[in-house]
Amino acid sequence: MSTVIGGIVRRELSAYFSTPIAWVFLIIFVFMTALMTFTLGDLFGRGQADLGPFFSLLPWLFMFFLPAVSMRLWAEERQTGNIELLLTLPVPPATIVIGKFLAAWAFVALALALTFPLWLTINYLGEPDNGKVLAAYLASWLMAGAMLAAGSLVSASTRNQVVAFVVTVFLLFLLLWPGMTAAELESSTSGFARFFTELASAVSFLSHFRRLADGIVNVADGLYFVGTIAIFLVATGLMLEWKKTHAL
C-alpha cells in the first residue's frame, strides 16, 4: 500500500513541477513573504530578533496562496476526465484522496523551507529562540495542511479550477476570521461576548495557530489541526462519491 501512496504522491508532485505552477508559486511565495515581512511587518524597525511579523502575516498569505495549490487536486481530474481512470484503478479511493493531499502538503513544506533566508537574517541580526521559530514553522505547516484539506474538498466539488480557487479563498477567510473577532472581543466583559469569544477562538484556525506559533506547545491545538485535516479529507471522499451520481 505504501508504494501505491508513494506512486500517487510522486505523480502529483511531478505534475506540479512539470507545469509552471510550481516554479511560479515558489518564487512569488518566497518573494511575497520576504517583502511583506520587511514592509508590513517592519522586521527591522521592531528591534527584535524574531520572526513574529512573518508568522503573523503567514495565515493571510496562505489564504491566497494555498488555494492555488489545492485547486487542481480534483477539479483538474474531473475536467480532463482522468477521474474515471483514477477511480477505476484497484486502489481504495481513500488512498488516492490521502496521496493527493500529501503531495500538496509536501509541496507547501518545500515552499515554507524556502523561506529560510528570513531565518538566516534574524540569526545574523541577533540571537533568536530557534526552538520557538521551529515550533512556529511546524504550526504553520500544520495549519497549511488543514487549509489544503479544505481546498481538497472544494476542488472535489467542481470541475472548474478558478471556481475552486475563489471558493477556497472565501472558505479560508471564514475559517480565519473568527480568530480576529475573538482578539477584538477579548477585552469585553459581558457574558455574551465572552461566550462568543470562546466559540470563535475554538473554531478559528487563527487562534489555534497563534498559540502554537507563540511556542506554546499544546497537544489540543495540534490535534485540532490534525482533526480538521481528517474531517476535510473524509468529506472530500464523500464529495467525490456523491458527485459521481449527482453531477454529470
Binding site: 505523480r11 505534475a15 480532463t80 476526465g81 482522468n82 474515471e84 481512470l85 477505476t88
Partner: peptide
C-alpha cells in the same frame, strides 16, 4: 478489469 474511458484521456503533462 481494464478500462478505456471515453475520449481516452491521460495525464497530458506526463
Amino acid at each position: 478489469v481494464g478500462y478505456l474511458p471515453e475520449g481516452a484521456p491521460g495525464y497530458g503533462e506526463m
